[in-house]
Structure formats: C-alpha cells, structure tokens
Amino acid sequence: MFRLLNFEFNRIFKLLVGLSIGVFGIQLISVIISTISYKESVIESNLREGMTLQEIVETYGLFEAYYITLNNLFFLPVGICAGVILFSIFFIWYRDWAGKNTFMYRLMMLPQSRMTIYYAKLLTIMITVLSLAFIQYLYLYIYAIVAKLILPSQYIGSLNPSDMISQSSLQVILAPDTLLFISAYLIGTLFVMMMFTLILLERSYKFVGLLIGGLYLFVIASLIIGFIVHQYIFNPYPYFYKTELVIIAILAWLILTLITFIWNRHLMKRKITV
C-alpha cells in the first residue's frame, strides 16, 4: 500500500513543487504591491501633506493582516491550484490508460488488492491538496516578514497569520475551527471519491457510464444545493439549528461516502478493464 502510494506521489511531486513555487511567486508580487501601495498612498502622501506619523496612524490605523490578502492577485494562484487539482483528479487515472503505454495493465496485475490502486490515487490527491493548503499557511509567515522589511516598524500592527486567514477567503482552505477544518477535508475527500466514481463508470461502461455517473452527481448536487437554498436563501434564518445541521451533515456524509465507496469498490474489483 505504502509503496504504491509512494510511487503515485512521486509521479505527481513535480507538479506539487511547481504549484508551490508558482503560488509563492505570484502571491509575493501581490503582497509587495499591496505593501508598497500602502506605503505610497497612506504614509508618504500624507507625510508630504504635513501630517505627523502619529496622526497618520490615528486616521488610517496600522498596517494589519487584512492588507496582506487585500489584492485580488493574491487569490489567483489559489484558484489556479484548485483548477489544477480538479484536473489532476482525472489526470491521475486517465494517464494510465492513454498514450503508447498502458500502465494500467501493470497496476491491475500487481499481486495485491485492486483497491490499493484506488487508495493510492485518492491519498495522493488528498496529500497534494493538504500540502498546498499548509504551504499556503507557511507562506503567510514569510509575507509578514516581507511586509516588515518594506514598511517602517511604527506602521506595522498585528501581522499574525491567523488573522490573515480569519479576515480573508483563506478560511475556506484553512478553517480556523478544527472541526470545520476536518469536515472541509472530509467533504473534499468525498468529492474526489465521487469524481472517481464518474471516471470508473466511464472506464467500465464508456459513454453509458458517463451518463449514469453524471446523473448520479447531478441528483446528489441538486439535493445538497436544494437543501442549502431551502435553509438559507428563502428564509431569514435556517430552519435547523447548528447542532442539528452538524448531525444532518455527518449523516449525509456517512451515507454518501458509504454508497460511493461500495460502488467504487465494485467497479474497481469487477468492472474496470484495460
């Protein structure tokens, strides 16, 4: 198991490194732009107009965590990563069938459970996603240092990475609540498994499978979206209490994961072909 996971992970590692570097490069530029424009528009222009340092701080506040993620450019690489991950969910399977070589033959002929292939691919995707999320967290510390290098220290407020997360959309990938964090990635895993269902169905039944899989995903997505709309869009307050919503979410997750898993296992063991 660990060997195959290692093998799969090594195959995607270059992509992971590439994405990490790309994210850092673009976000660094974004942070530098935000910081320099703050320095220019808030500090220097007001100093020219005769305000004192104290007055500037009193009027505009300090340079805080919020400014780091202010520029939209900051979230561009996050979006790109999401797209690449979505692509790699499909890529990690189809590359073993496509081209002059058909590695899927070898994978399926390994003297171990077929599900090992499935787990290896699923875990590879999840590890890649988590790596990107946490490397983003690591980068926030670097951006704080960069901002401190550019701005005079009198203007610097709290540049705590926790604040950068809780005051921006970054909380989607790094939820400050531990339970929410774990739920987010468990739901993410379920999403990846459902995409795998689609792929395995297509591999097993070709176009018909794609149709069945698409219908399955459509029904599930409609149910979930319908529920959310019912809870939040037409009502001022959701019908269910949060504690009840947690139970509903856990049950829904369990049922869907079980169905998806059993289906995927059936497809892996009995249906997919080379």
């Binding site: 002059k100 070589n101 058909t102 590695f103 033959y105 070898r106 080379v274």
Partner: peptide
C-alpha cells in the same frame, strides 16, 4: 505481456 508497453515511458 500485452501488445503495449505496461510501464511509464
């Protein structure tokens, strides 16, 4: 041994 290569190129 299938008629295509079974290992990544």
């Amino acid at each position: 041994v299938p008629d295509v290569l079974t290992m990544p190129l």
